[in-house]
Amino acid sequence: MNPDPAFPPENDASFQAFIRLCAEKGLSSRPRGIEDCDRCDGLSDYTTLLRFLIARKNDPKAAVGQLQQSVDFRQDRDILRLYDVVDTEDFEQARRFYPHWTGRRNKQGLPICYFDISQLHKNALNSWEESRKSAGWSISEYEAGGSPRPDMLQMASVFHDSLVRFVLPLCTMMTDRSNASTPVSSSIYLVDASELGLKQGWNLKTFAQEISWLLSTCYPETILKVFVCNAPSYFATVWKYLKKWVDPNTAEKIEVLSSNEVSDALKEHIDDANIPTAFGGAFEFTHGSLPSPDQNILDRLSWESSNQTLPSGPLKFSQDGDGKLTAVAVGALQGAKRNEVIATID
């Protein structure tokens, strides 16, 4: 049996061996910390397991080891519990630190994420460094009535969970793709490097190390391509320094584009209507903005509100006994835990 159409048939034996090992160690069962109605998308579904196997070159034992490390991290840092109660302001602050979904997709239906590297300025990086000294958020302190604050690595994980638990599944549900039977498991990154300074580049070492570790360990193969756009002439010097701190698999996916190369390169992969104006397209999107879904996504969802907008904070999918899928906004808004139905989908 080939459980995932994206998986090459010749590697079925590796996948089946991997699935058996996952079952033996309880890694393919429902994770602790999610609600009974929560979908397992991005956590223990076949598509997620497959990403770990591909990342380890179809080596079942190595893939199980990496998956176990990812599960242990989530459990040790209470990531799944934090996802449901995190303050939406903290979540939105995290949005400014990492590539975030624009609401648009490329020509193959993969989500497009945007990031302006100038946002990693001295003050932002100092905040990151300070958070590394804190004890972070814990469910025990939270349930005891305390008000623990998550550290930056916890927030990075919660934020990237929103990609694998909501954005990728949503894009998978879209039927306007050329290969709608293949799950969407990765995204395209557009990085604006026009304001990158030499000194800023040298200050990114610790940040690059920790985020690279998190992405390669817990979110392998979620990036298909990274376009570094409007790169200054000295970018090669900065990249030569930073590259040693970036996961090699991710580094191979990076394509550096000067300002006069950006438009033509992006239009090969993305329709003009979905390319941000910063890169010569028609889509008005700025760093830190909430997603602005394309019309096909808007039409695919049955919205609870006529506004047809995705709110701030973390989102996830739940499923009732009849199989009905619901997009739910969670997290805490002004101190009150949120569980708001945004839309339903067939």
Rank of each mutant, 00 (worst) to 15 (best):
C113L: 14
C113G: 09
Y114C: 08
F115T: 02
I117G: 01
I117P: 03
S118C: 10
L120C: 03
H121C: 09
K122F: 07
N123F: 15
N123K: 14
A124C: 14
L125D: 00
W128C: 12
W128M: 15
E129V: 13
E130N: 10
E130Y: 09
R132C: 15
A135V: 12
W137Q: 01
Y142K: 01
A144P: 04
A144G: 09
G146K: 06
S147A: 14
S147Q: 13
P148G: 03
P148H: 00
R149F: 09
P150R: 00
P150V: 05
M152Y: 15
L153E: 07
Q154H: 05
M155R: 02
M155I: 11
A156Q: 08
A156D: 07
S157T: 14
V158H: 00
H160E: 11
D161V: 06
D161S: 08
L163M: 07
V164E: 03
R165A: 12
R165H: 09
F166H: 03
V167Q: 03
V167H: 01
L168Y: 00
L168F: 04
L170Y: 01
C171L: 07
T172I: 07
M173G: 10
T175S: 13
T175P: 08
T175D: 12
D176Y: 01
R177K: 05
R177M: 01
R177A: 03
N179Q: 13
N179K: 12
A180Y: 05
S181T: 13
T182Q: 12
T182L: 11
P183D: 00
V184Y: 02
V184K: 03
S185T: 15
S186F: 00
S186C: 08
S186Q: 08
